[in-house]
Amino acid sequence: MRPSARNTRNRDTRSAALGIGALAILGGAAILMQRRTQPKPRPKPRRKLRRSAAIMGASMLVDSAMEHFRGGFHNKAMLAAPVLAAASTLGATARAPHMLPVHATSVAVGAAGLGFHGYNIAKRPGGFNWDNLFYAAPIGAPGGLAVTGLLALASDAHTARHGRMLAGFTALATLAETAEVALLHFRGAWHNPAMYLPVTIPPIAAALLLEQALHPNPKTRGAARGAQRLMAAMGVVGTGFHIYGVSRQMGGWHNWRQNAFDGPPVSAPSSFIALALSGKAALDLMEGAP
C-alpha cells in the first residue's frame, strides 16, 4: 500500500479494535471461568470487599496525590485526600483492627471534598458550565474516597440483607463513576471509539445489580455476575488504554514526568475492578455465603 501523507484519516480504530478484542478474550475467559469454578469454594465476600476497598483506595491515592501535587497543594486540605486514601488502603489490606474511625473519616472527607470541588468549579468565571466541569476540580472525584471508606466499612457485612444493600450501593457508585467517565471522555471528544466502552458496560452491570438489590432473583444472578466480571476485565483493558493514551501525548512515556499528569490517568480505570469486586461480594452475600 502506498504510504499516506495525511494524518490518520479516522478515529483511532486500530487500537480500539485491538482493545475490544482483548476485552472479548479477557472478559470471555472470566465469564467462562465463573461457570467452571462454580463448585470450588469462592473467596469469602469479606476478602473480596477488602480487596475492592484496597484497589479503589490505591486508585484514589495515586489520582489524588498526582492531581493535588500538580495543584501544588496550594490549599492544605488537599493533603487530606491522599493521606486518608493511603490509610484506608493500608487498613483494608492489612486487615488492621480498629480502623473504623479512619474509614469513617475517609467517608466524611470524601463527602466534604465534593463540596470543595463544587466550590472550585463555581468560583471560576462561568460557574457551573461545561468548560469548568471539564477543567476545574473534577466534580465527582472525591466521591471515590468516600466509596473507599464505605467499602472498607462494608467488609463486615454478612447477611443476605447486607448483600442487597451493598448491591444497591455498588450499582449507584458504578453509575456515578460512569457519569464522571462520560464527562471526561466527552472532553476528549471520544477520539478513540473504545472510549465508549466504559459508558456502556458499567451501566448494564449497574442495572443488573440494581435489579438484584430491588428484586433478588436467583435466575438472573448469573447474568449479573457475568456483567461484573466483564466490567472487571474492562478495568484491566482500560488501564492498558490509558497507558497507551499517555504514549500519544507529545514525547510519550519518555516525557512521563509531564505526560503521566496530562494524559489519561492510568490509575482511573482500575476503580471499575474495585466496583466489580464489590458487586460480586454483594451477590455472594445474597446467595448466602457468609
Binding site: N7, T8, R9, D12, P125, G126, D131, R187, G188, A189, H191, N192, G245, R248, Q249, M250, Q258, D262
Partner: peptide, 27 residues
C-alpha cells in the same frame, strides 16, 4: 466581561485538545 455583564467565550482554536491521529494534543 462578567463584571461588565457582557458575554465571553473560550476561543475556538485550530489546535487539538485531545489526540487526533498523528497530532498529539496541545501542550
Amino acid at each position: 466581561a462578567e463584571a461588565l455583564g457582557v458575554d465571553w467565550a473560550p476561543t475556538p482554536l485550530a489546535t487539538v485538545s485531545a489526540p487526533r491521529g498523528k497530532s498529539p494534543p496541545c501542550v
